[in-house]
Write a protein that binds this DNA or RNA. Sequence first.
DNA 1: TTGACAATACGAAAGTCTTCGTAATAGTCT
DNA 2: AGACTATTACGAAGACTTTCGTATTGTCAA
Lengths: 129, 129
Amino acid sequence: MNQEPLQKPTASELEILRVLWARGPSTVREVYQELRERKSLGYTTVLKLLQIMTAKGSVRRNEEQRAHVYQACQPATETKRQLARDVLQRVFEGSASELMLHALEGRRTSQKELHELRRLLDEYEGRSR
Amino acid sequence: MNQEPLQKPTASELEILRVLWARGPSTVREVYQELRERKSLGYTTVLKLLQIMTAKGSVRRNEEQRAHVYQACQPATETKRQLARDVLQRVFEGSASELMLHALEGRRTSQKELHELRRLLDEYEGRSR
DNA sequence: TTGACAATACGAAAGTCTTCGTAATAGTCT
DNA sequence: AGACTATTACGAAGACTTTCGTATTGTCAA
C-alpha cells in the first residue's frame, strides 16, 4: 500500500523519524539506542513501530542484511512542512502571524533567532514581488 | 479533578474549544449547530465530548439552566500558546525560524501577513533590549 | 396529571496508539 | 551438528478517541 498524501505521523513515529533523519538509514538497534538516551522503552517496541511505519509507507527497509535497514520515505523538510501546515490550519486558521505570536509569546528569543526570522521574511518579501 | 498544566486537547476537543472561544459560553445545541455546518456529527457526540472535557477540566459548565452552559477554562491564547510550543519543541527542536520556514514554505503569503510578522518581530526586538 | 419533547447520563463499540512478551528464524561459533 | 545469540514476526493488552444508541430525567402545556 503506497498512498501519496502520507498521513501525519503520530508522536512516537515522529520521534523515530527524527532519528532516521539525523542518522540516515539505520537498523532497529541503532534507532533503539538513540531513543533510549532520552526515554525508556523496549527494543521490540521500536521494532514494532518501524514495522507499522513500513506498512503505512512512512519508512521503507532494505532487507539485504540480516538486520534490516530502515529509512524515512519523505525528507525531513516535507514532513515538517506538513506538520507546520497542520497546526497553522487547525489551530490558527491559516494565520502565520498568529502562529508566530503564540510560538514566541513569553519566551526568550535570541538575537540570532530574530535575525534569522527577519532574513526569512526578507526572502519571502523579495519573492512575492 | 483540576490539574493546572492542562494536557493538550485532541483534534475534536480543539474544534469544540474553537467554537466556545468564538461564541463564548454556549449550550450543547449551540455548539452542535455550529460544528454541523462544517462536518456531520450527532448531537450526543458533542454532548459526550463536552462531558469528557468537563471531566478533564478543559471546560466547565453552569448547570443553573435546564440546558447546561459550557465555557472553556483556558482562554484561547493560552491553549494556542501551548499548541504552538508543542509543535515548536516536538518538530522543530525549539527553532522558531525553522517553524516559520516550514509554515510559509511554498505558500502565497499576503503583504498584510508579512507586514504583521515584521511588526511582531519589531515588538520582540524592542522588548529584548 | 400525563403526554410530548428536549436535555442529560450512561454504556459500549470500533478504531488507533503504544507497549511488550513470546515465538520463530537466521546467523555464528565451537 | 548443536548451542548460543541477535533479529524479526506475531499477537495481544491497555489506554485513549470518537461516535452513537438507548435510557433517564426535567419542563411545559393541555
